[in-house]
Amino acid sequence: MIRAFSYNEFLFLLSAVQWTLALSAIAFIGGATVGLVIALARTSDIKAVRLAATGYIQLFQGTPLLMQLFLVFFGATVMGLDLNPWAAAALGLTLNASAFLGEIWRGCIQAVPRGQWEAASALGLRYPGLMRYVILPQAVKVAVPPTVGFLVQLIKSTSLAAIIGFTELTRAGQIVNNATFQPFLVFGIVAVLYFLMCWPLSLLSARLERRYALATR
């Protein structure tokens, strides 16, 4: 039973875009939250904390994202948890994103000159106030362009969630292709849809980077 590729198939692909966006958003918010903790741990004065954060980052940067998704998805089953593909994908991507964002933001925190830490400490600010009012506001300015750049990576990474059965854009493409056998057309459309999500962000990232470069000249 081969169906023709019709307007309905196109609408199905289009509606799958929202799941890709939703998964990206969840992974980004979760990854940013955990990533901030990782970045702070990586720049901590306490050696054990620093080492733990370094290990976490290396673990997630040194293994394929697909393996991480498998481990979360099947690992949960082994541990007797019934994690649906949606939750497994969100959790796996969150962990992965947190490691990458943590490492990006570590660099941004360390880019704030030593003198700023010293001046704030000399004024009597303790770590939380020093971070919140002096270091992080300056680190954020450096962090925005690479963070937006990473978001593009993250959106593309969500396509791997298709393999554990979560119906986002790529999985929707597979489903439509199985019914229509028009791979070039179907995956061409899927690619264009990804491009339309990522391209504006890439432009934004490049623009922010240029603006930052001008501001710090």
């Binding site: 700023q116 001046a119 004024l123 600010l125 106030g129 506001p137 300056q138």
Partner: peptide, 27 residues
């Protein structure tokens, strides 16, 4: 103990008056 540095080390993201207000408010 107050300290003044060779490189000033003012907080560039805060205005002059905010630089001066930060520690009294937060410390």
């Amino acid at each position: 103990v107050g300290m003044v540095f060779q490189q000033f080390n003012l907080f560039p993201h805060l205005t002059v008056v905010e630089n001066c207000m930060l520690a009294p408010m937060r410390v």
